[in-house]
Simulated scan of single mutants.
Amino acid sequence: MQAVLRAARQARTFTEKSLRRWGEGAELIEAAVLIVCELATNAICHGAQETGPGSEPGPEAAFTLRLALQPEVLHIEVRDGSAVLPVQRAAGREDGCGRGLLIISALAESWTCGPDPDGGKWVRASLSRVADALMG
């Protein structure tokens, strides 16, 4: 499980360093890092579940992160080996999970997902680079 935790941390660090290098502001960086954290965690957890409850994550738990910076929007995409598409749900007060896509919905302008023709799936979130949109 250590490698899995390291992969999620590396995705967050990669995102933060890339956006700083590209000259983006703190608000966009913070939102993007949170979205990457949720997408990476979902990719790891749901890929791992395919091997069976309580088992260690297998190769299908691997994921790919892609950041695409355009003039008005940042696209964040995660691809993983699971064919199961994510569904936003309402987690109860006592639930330990189930809030990731709700967080993404609150931070991103939009999110979408689909099957990867080569197997697995992709999940993409779009963040506005316009300061007013980030302020709420």
Rank of each mutant, 00 (worst) to 15 (best):
T41N: 15
N42I: 15
N42K: 09
A43T: 07
A43C: 09
A43N: 06
I44L: 15
I44Q: 03
I44T: 07
I44D: 02
I44E: 05
C45E: 14
C45H: 09
C45D: 12
H46L: 11
H46Q: 11
G47D: 08
G47K: 07
A48D: 05
Q49P: 00
Q49F: 09
Q49N: 13
Q49E: 15
E50I: 13
E50R: 10
E50T: 13
E50S: 06
E50F: 05
T51Y: 14
T51D: 11
T51W: 13
P53E: 15
P53R: 14
G54C: 11
G54M: 09
S55D: 06
S55M: 14
S55C: 12
S55L: 15
S55P: 00
E56M: 10
E56S: 07
E56D: 06
P57F: 12
P57S: 06
P57G: 05
G58N: 08
P59V: 08
P59F: 04
A61W: 08
A61M: 09
A61Y: 05
A61P: 02
A61L: 08
A62H: 06
F63I: 07
F63E: 02
F63Y: 07
F63W: 03
F63C: 04
T64M: 00
T64Q: 03
L65K: 01
L67W: 00
L67E: 01
A68G: 01
A68Q: 02
A68K: 00
A68M: 00
A68C: 01
L69G: 00
L69C: 03
L69I: 14
L69N: 00
Q70G: 06
Q70A: 08
Q70W: 03
